[in-house]
Amino acid sequence: MRQTRTAYLFLAPGLALFVVFRVYPLLEGLRLSFTNARLGRAAVRYVGIANYTRLLEDTRFHVSLANTAFYTVASTLPVLVIPLVLALALNRGALRTVLRSVFFFPFTLSVVTVGLTWLWLLDPVVGPFNYYLRTAGLPARSWLADPATAMWAIIATTVWWVTGYYLVIYLAGLQDIPRELYEAAALDGASGWRSFRSITLPLLRPVLLFVVVTHIIGSFQLFGQVFVLTGGGPGDATRTVVQHLYEAAFQNFFQFGAASAMAWALFAVILLFSIFQFRLLRGHTEY
């Protein structure tokens, strides 16, 4: 009994913070999604599921949902593989610490700084990237203004930004694999590829899944890169759900009700994805 009181006293400040600024807004958002709430509107009415049915007709919302999904799927493989390859190359060797730092460095930058950097590099007319492409005889493009490449440019920027983070995680995972396993495999005459497939990959599986889950939850909320690099363009080619929501709530019409409905629709999608992921995670970690 005493201990219960003590425990809750310890928990009180954190739980207060959590309930007021996480749980309450979550539920309040659900409530708002059934209203016609708007910034500065005094008389707020319940409108049933009108905000949700309107989402079904909002083609720009569909486009942004499709873009977000495309980004999520298309960026997962590079984010999964590039740091892994680097980690394998850097796992042993004299330059490990230095190079790890180099690759990690972009991750300390804010998304805005990353965006500004790449905006300047990729400037279609006076940016260095296109200049070197032209010098090398390769076709220069306006990467961020070309519907065929804009999302890929955002993905490349993101890969540059986060590779260091996942690299460190992979390196830690690799360090935890007992060396003896590789030595035993080498004695059995296994090739490098064989021991990668039969030792490294299976033992790294929890790490890989962590990377995928973290990346996917982040990807569904893609905003900063798009805000700085393309503003959602060209046209709506890189418009994302969070951008659509942000504009509906805070840029154009200040429709809090409609934006809340978008938020919950997004939440539902993420929830479905997460359940799917956890199924996978649970299924595979028991080896």
Partner: peptide, 10 residues
Amino acid sequence: PPANANCRDA
């Protein structure tokens, strides 16, 4: 120029 060019810089 491309849709996202800085025409002034150009």
